[in-house]
Design a protein around this nucleic acid. Structure first.
Lengths: 229, 229
DNA sequence: TCAGTTCAAGTCAATTGCACCTTTACTGCC
DNA sequence: GGCAGTAAAGGTGCAATTGACTTGAACTGA
């Protein structure tokens, strides 16, 4: 082995939608879980979950495993973001990080056991992070918002059944702008990416909205001919 | 050092436009230079140029250096493509390749000294390559064609001064479909990505077309808040 | 039963995209 | 020198899409 070879690691930026406060009426916003570093460098600072790559796992598998081990989260969507490898990202040691980004559903996000060393932060306003992780979060946010506009990735934030209003609220939360409900409905229906079910969501104090499910024959991510492993 | 740590390398997919045959009238198509492997595994097979990452260079610098050393090419545009790291990509040894893609201008492409170990191939129909390099080329082609449609990346294929017809021919060659000259002109002019010069290209047996130059204040790639190193 | 709320569908003007047409300006040849 | 050929450059009109707005339907809770 070359003693000058950089250390290789994977990290993951995880996004989930959470209510801004405990009230039901407040709109959801983007949050991400961070882990506290328990050793130098940057001991005590918050950082993206990550770790080394196992000898018998692919890069994506390594990201998913690290995710599960450090935050107890299983992601519905996992995509490679970028490989970061400038010289100055870590003091004393050369580290090349292959970073993934993940989307988890709200019910799954609850499983992330918050504690002293794992906590959720607003994605748009994270604290000062270890290494170059602030830059990485910023880039991941850009990619997410970009991809929302040309793919059906929003579905990864939702469960099996959802109303068109819920789907619209995902777009509004990520893109941070209100969308016209009628036009949104027309656009989504024209793509055939969702399928209407017979069920309706009862219980609200208004006309019960129809529940939809995702059209499985649709490509969620539009990532081209990539072997997503 | 962890003896199980994967070997880290960079490779680059280089694209250039070249005339299909020696005649001037034939339309240009996409070509890429490949290098012949001179050792096992896959000795004798064609492969993407690449190599190890130096101790004091960033990933992008490593890609550019390898490019220059193996093919004598300096690229006008270099962007990270993807990090490939499945277990089966190389026999006996675990290799993680961080792959870049590059665009070079026709005049620069001439510098690639073709010989026994470096040769140009049609990008859409490469031979059977070493490792998973056929997959990588296919993905790079997808990214290039995708990016042509929402960025001004085509300019990286051209020199300082160019006519709108030349620019249109770049799009036609990459996207493999004819474009309406009038509509193309209007679209390009509406973006303000090019600036008209006073010069015209004389010598043709027709009305001399105006020469344009690229608007430097325009973002060529639209890669978001990435530190492109 | 009624007020309040949201779902769901429809209308219309403005904008954009695309196919096609006309005019302009040069070169090469007779 | 005039004419034919060619591509540049600009223009026109239709179709599809988008965005702002309106209307009616369906349900809950008081």
């Amino acid at each position: 082995m070359n003693p000058e070879a950089p250390t290789l690691a994977v990290s993951t930026v995880i996004f989930a939608l959470r209510a801004t406060d405990s009230s039901e009426t407040s709109p959801a916003t983007l949050w991400l879980p961070l882990v506290r570093r328990i050793r130098e460098p940057f001991e005590g600072k918050w950082a993206l979950p990550g770790g080394p790559i196992g000898a018998s796992e692919s890069l994506g598998d390594a990201a998913a495993r690290n995710l599960l081990e450090t935050t107890s989260l299983r992601s519905r969507y996992l995509e490679q973001l970028y490989a970061f490898g400038t010289l100055d990202r870590s003091p004393s040691q050369r580290v090349v990080s292959i970073v993934y980004w993940a989307l988890v559903r709200p019910d799954e996000a609850e499983r992330a056991t918050e504690g002293e060393n794992v906590r959720w932060f607003a994605a748009d306003d994270p604290p000062q992070l270890a290494f170059d992780h602030n830059t990485i979060v910023e880039y991941a946010l850009w990619r997410l918002r970009n991809k929302m506009e040309y793919s059906r990735i929003a579905h990864a934030f939702l469960g099996e059944r959802f109303t068109l209003t819920q789907l619209r609220e995902v777009y509004e939360a990520v893109l941070r702008k209100p969308l016209d409900p009628a036009n949104f409905r027309r656009q989504i229906e024209s793509t055939n990416s969702v399928v209407a079910t017979d069920e309706r969501l009862a219980g609200g104090r208004h006309r019960p909205p129809r529940l939809y499910r995702y059209n499985e024959s649709f490509d969620l991510a539009d990532n081209g001919p990539l072997p997503m492993t």
